[in-house]
Design a protein around this nucleic acid. Structure first.
Lengths: 232, 232
DNA sequence: CGGGATATTGATTGATTTCAATGTGAGTGG
DNA sequence: CCACTCACATTGAAATCAATCAATATCCCG
């Protein structure tokens, strides 16, 4: 069980908190990342790593948001996941990254040498279990996303997306307004739709009184129930 | 690095080969599965495990093929992956399965208690690393599949599917004829298409001379190049 | 030689894409 | 402070690809 919140709280500041013993983080992947990793700033739209590059590091979002994606030759882009504060990404077991990663906005990302983490996992079976759990969590996310992309209507996709974002951004889950870190094109490429369809679907949901759109990056979920109904 | 082929070769027979010391399999997940798991037969269309069930076991296909899938309330089904001999599946880190699994045809599947494997991984860091690698491999498969489902045409999806199956069934990769273990409906649900579209696309590929269809379960890849071109 | 499941083929519909235009908002410089 | 600009978002009309509805064909098995 990966305690992502534990590091998020302490690491939101400038760097590592001065003197805390960090007992809670020991024997976890998040703890290992915090010990071995340095927080690095990435500006908006800057690449964190590229598809095909050697997978030398593991990453954890401290602040901001990251997209991982693949592009086809003709430019079609599929975003596989959005990574928010606390999320660990780049957990490849192979030698190279199969996706690319970019900062969506200005970001702080903790970067830790993979070899260090792997070595630690070899010594500490709790870290190894945690590394496995984190990878399995990514797997579950990818599987859920497959479901969304497979055979859902545009409305269902957008509703699923909004509910997922709502569940992730607010810690408690009772937050009705969500602040999107990404633009419409990102959402479209995440949902396997065009930007126009995303836009139309959002306005349709607004007309149906399911949501409200105070600004393009801010969405108020007025009726989670009707969104849930679309979530199938 | 999971050596799936090592067990495939030996396990294709009736069960475990009589007296081999199996040095090669030690310290691997496949080896652990072989030590701790019993080969069990599943008949066509029988459920191996269901979504939401406790994830008590890990599985490895010995013979036959397995589909893992999810169904929406209204019956739409998304197949997440097909598992062929040697493939390990059911690697959930959470307490319960997020997908269901069914035997596509009559199958032999090695079933090993998860607790045993996890305990072994806690003792043997090589097994732990291998468990991680196998999970990451599933993750990579799911990510590739997302790409396919996201924003590809029917023709591209079918071409990708055929190439993937060709790469998996024949060990060397030079096998031009592929024998499909699954029916058209399975393919459709895997690709996020209808059965009619799959059928039409296959006949279109046949008319384009990219493939030949001696029977519905047997497909000859006449021009991998043209399929590759569609693979984008 | 049926008979039922599976697969193919045809005609039509419909959701989403595409092409095109307009709207909006934030940042910049006059 | 306002006009300007550029990126981003919305809206509209037409085209297109795949889904749906419907019929026929084929295969496998008893």
């Amino acid at each position: 069980m990966l305690k992502q919140q534990s590091t998020t709280g302490t690491a939101t500041g400038t760097g590592r908190p001065p003197q805390l013993p960090q007992r809670a983080s020991e024997h976890t992947l998040a703890g290992a990342l915090e010990m071995l990793g340095a927080p690095i700033r990435f500006e908006r739209n800057v690449e964190v790593y590229g598809e095909g590059e050697a997978a030398e590091y593991f990453y954890q979002v401290v602040k901001g948001a990251v997209r991982t994606y693949k592009v086809l030759q003709d430019g079609r882009r599929q975003i596989g996941a959005f990574h928010l504060p606390g999320d660990i990404f780049g957990l490849e077991a192979g030698d190279e990254h199969s996706f690319s990663a970019e900062a969506i906005g200005d970001c702080t990302i903790r970067v830790a040498k993979r070899s260090g983490i792997v070595a630690m996992a070899a010594r500490d079976s709790d870290v190894a279990a945690d590394l496995w759990a984190a990878t399995a969590k990514s797997l579950r996310g990818a599987q859920e996303h497959m479901l969304l992309l497979g055979r859902k209507t545009a409305e269902e996709r957008v509703a699923s997306f909004l509910l997922k974002m709502a569940g992730r951004s607010g810690g408690a889950g009772a937050e009705p307004t969500i602040e999107l870190p990404m633009c419409r094109q990102d959402i479209a490429d995440y949902l396997g739709l065009t930007i126009e369809t995303v836009s139309r679907t959002l306005t349709h949901l607004e007309n149906t009184l399911a949501i409200e759109l105070p600004s393009s990056r801010r969405i108020l979920l007025r009726s989670k129930a009707s969104l849930q109904r679309l979530n199938a």
